[in-house]
Design a binder for these strands. Structure first.
Lengths: 189, 189
DNA sequence: ACTGGCATGTAATTTGTTACATGATTGT
DNA sequence: ACAATCATGTAACAAATTACATGCCAGT
């Protein structure tokens, strides 16, 4: 599924500008499941407009550049539904944290501890975003509540595990007085 | 973290060929947290060799092309540890399944049901891979058991939620006799 | 004064995938 | 016969990020 399709999907919930779509990827409905930069979003919206999948209306603003508000056309809506019905790819995950755990026996204990703290904080922030999303009236739909609950159980499972098992990982790591050993692989007298 | 670094990391566990590294991304230690194609792995190994981070030894084989077995040099090992200690990026997830749930109210019920089945099966397969990884003697290390347990709790949380709440999502979807409505947005008499 | 939010867009670069090219062996 | 596994590598292509370019307004 390409960015064009995802942008079209967001527009089924109502019109939005490129800037607003970026914010939705960051803290809104899509945070944690998709992300894209301005360099992807703006060209995607331009191409969607060329294809007649969206309409673009320039909204004048004081001082700031015109806001370009995009709205989905019936054709765009039908195309989005068809695309999403065609099949989905397996989840793609790239977790540098998980990689760090796999090599924890090579890393200084302080580094591992900091990474665990960081990971827990990120998951807590993600949970807070879900709480906010739940308050939004648009989340009245059952499927959105499903999606929020789904994110929640996974984040909670991860946080619980990290908190209750972090000692295991910290014990595997290189003790503070032994860091040179880890790098050289040789213990000197 | 780039592919070169990840390949170097895998080589801390012992020498391997490009082909074997690919398999490790698919079913081994890294399945579920990282993935890369041959088109990324082979050039990465070539560059690691140019930089002196790995050594390459050609192993002759009958019929098949020579197997190029790479092993990490002390310099490569030190560089890997330094890189991994420098900091990690937040997890990156791209879940088309999660996107489908967000738009479940636009999709035919049969499509949603199939996607849920597919997702559960993928997670079960991932669990089976973790079970295999645990049997491997190299997984005796505490940090690897931590990593396996971490994957396990998240996968189990996801499967449990999907099984117990799938009715919610299926109820949101478009009933079988109503699909034209979803696309056109208009209900005809 | 400076940072951060609002707002768009392009160009250069990076990154990575897919497809192609080759070829023997083993299992169905 | 045919598909799959083993095994490497390149070239073409696609996707996406980063950095650049511009500029106002509000808050500290």
């Amino acid at each position: 599924m390409d960015i064009k399709t995802v942008c079209a999907g967001l527009l089924t919930f109502g019109e939005a500008s490129g800037y607003e779509i970026k914010k939705l990827f960051e803290d809104g409905t899509f945070s944690g499941v998709y992300d894209a930069s301005f360099g992807s979003i703006y060209p995607a919206l331009t191409r969607l407009a060329e294809e007649g999948h969206v309409l673009c209306r320039a909204e004048e603003q004081q001082g700031r550049p015109d806001k370009k508000v995009y709205s989905l056309t019936p054709k765009g809506r039908a195309h989005f539904i068809a695309e999403l019905s065609r099949g989905i790819q397996p989840d793609k995950v790239r977790s540098e944290f998980a990689i760090a755990t796999i090599f924890a026996h090579l890393l200084p204990r302080a580094v591992i501890a900091a990474y665990i703290d960081q990971q827990i904080e990120e998951h807590r922030a993600a949970l807070a975003r879900l709480d906010l999303a739940e308050c939004d009236p648009s989340s009245a739909m059952t499927n959105l509540r499903f999606a929020i609950g789904f994110g929640r159980v996974q984040l909670n499972a991860a946080i619980d595990y990290l908190e209750s098992h972090r000692g295991m990982l910290e014990a595997s790591a290189v003790p503070p007085d032994d860091e040179a050993v880890a790098v050289s692989g040789v213990k000197h007298a």
